[in-house]
Design a protein around this nucleic acid. Structure first.
Length: 299
RNA sequence: GGUGGGGUGACCGAGUGGCUAAUGGUAGCAGACUGUAAAUCUGCCGGGCUCUGCCCUACGUAGGUUCGAAUCCUACCCCCACCA
């Protein structure tokens, strides 16, 4: 089950628990970070007590995770959940994580961590245009996409000896699950209203204090876990680059833009049967419909 | 009341006689995306058409100068600063 931020995914998943014994696998690239609870809008303790959650609080804000890593972890969780005779429900907003789990990425060859770090230091110093030229030269199949994706193409080509596009075609992996996609959506005005409220709530619930505490652990502002809507704005404020009064509004703006990207992704990138549901109709009702459709095997 | 500065497209902000429907940025809309993905990028962005071009509207308001003005002149309105 996927959907944009602030659409109420967790509520629907919890309502679904009234129909079957289930456990939730969170496919969310921000909620993997420990301590960043408010800033990533993690399910509350109460919600976690009602239904077991996996995929939360996996690593420290300074550490890096990845879609491939998630796919391996999630596969194991799902096997366990099934072993307990329960239904795994994957809930999240990180499309790439869902894809990695459901469809598989490509089998990434082993990359020497030390060489990888050295290369990263080099590419991060290159001008964007230079970076794109290198990516195009090292991988004729490189389809563009900016700094980060160029750096990835360069990394794979140099460290594995074959271009990224080669691996993507030749080393395709199979997915670990057979997904039954449900995409939750909400009309733009409703979504925007929810997002505005959510941003204000974050600040009220101590977002800034939470981020300040993480920063005081010594993580640099560019640490992987600090890179996300909400956290970023709090960091800006804490570094004196933004007035406190503007934090909530900036978060709302960033979240709207993110939610739009998610919608686009879910609309075009998911492979297979996709069921679109209007989230504004309420979690109980939606859960009922989902359960009914599932019983009928109507995929 | 006086003096100085300023009023530009949804917002911020360049432009100081023709190359200007007007640089940039923001917001918005649409899109791409197979291991950093809450990331990283791309396109569009006054309105209307018979849409490789044409027409209308637009740089506070009203006039004027000029072949031609957002850019010069005059008056008025509003904002800011200082002086009264």
């Amino acid at each position: 089950m996927v959907g944009a931020t602030a659409v109420g995914k967790t509520a629907v998943a919890l309502a679904l628990a009234a129909h079957w014994p289930l456990e939730i696998v969170s496919a969310d690239s921000r909620q993997i970070y420990r301590r960043l609870d408010v800033g990533t809008a993690k399910p509350t303790r109460k919600e976690r007590a009602r239904v077991p959650h996996h995929g939360l609080d996996l690593i420290d804000p300074g550490a890096r995770y990845s879609a491939g890593h998630f796919a391996r972890d999630a596969e194991a969780w799902i096997a366990d959940i099934r072993g307990r005779g329960r239904l795994p429900v994957v809930v999240g907003g990180t499309g790439l994580y869902v894809r990695a789990l459901a469809e598989g990425l490509f089998r990434e060859p082993a990359l020497d961590p030390a060489r990888r770090r050295a290369l990263d230091a080099w590419t991060s110093r290159l001008e964007p245009l230079e970076l794109l030229r290198w990516a195009g030269r090292l991988d004729p199949g490189f389809r563009g996409g900016g700094r980060q994706r160029a750096a990835r193409a360069i990394e794979i080509a140099l460290l594995s000896g074959h271009p990224l596009s080669h691996w993507q075609q030749a080393a395709r992996a199979r997915g670990a699950i057979d997904p039954w996609y449900i995409v939750l959506t909400a009309p733009r005005p409703v979504l925007h209203q929810r997002i505005a409220r959510r941003a204000e709530e974050m600040v009220r619930r101590g977002l800034i204090e939470e981020v300040a505490a993480v920063l005081s652990e010594g993580h640099p502002p560019g640490a992987p876990g600090l890179d996300g809507v909400g956290i970023r704005e709090a960091v800006e404020y804490l570094h004196g680059r933004r007035p406190r009064a503007s934090v909530a509004e900036a978060i709302a703006t960033g979240t709207r833009q993110y939610a739009k990207r998610q919608e686009t992704w879910f609309r075009h990138q998911l492979d297979g049967t996709v069921r679109m549901l209007d989230a504004t109709r309420g979690p109980e009702r939606l859960a009922g419909e989902i359960a009914e459709a599932w019983e009928k095997g109507d995929a």
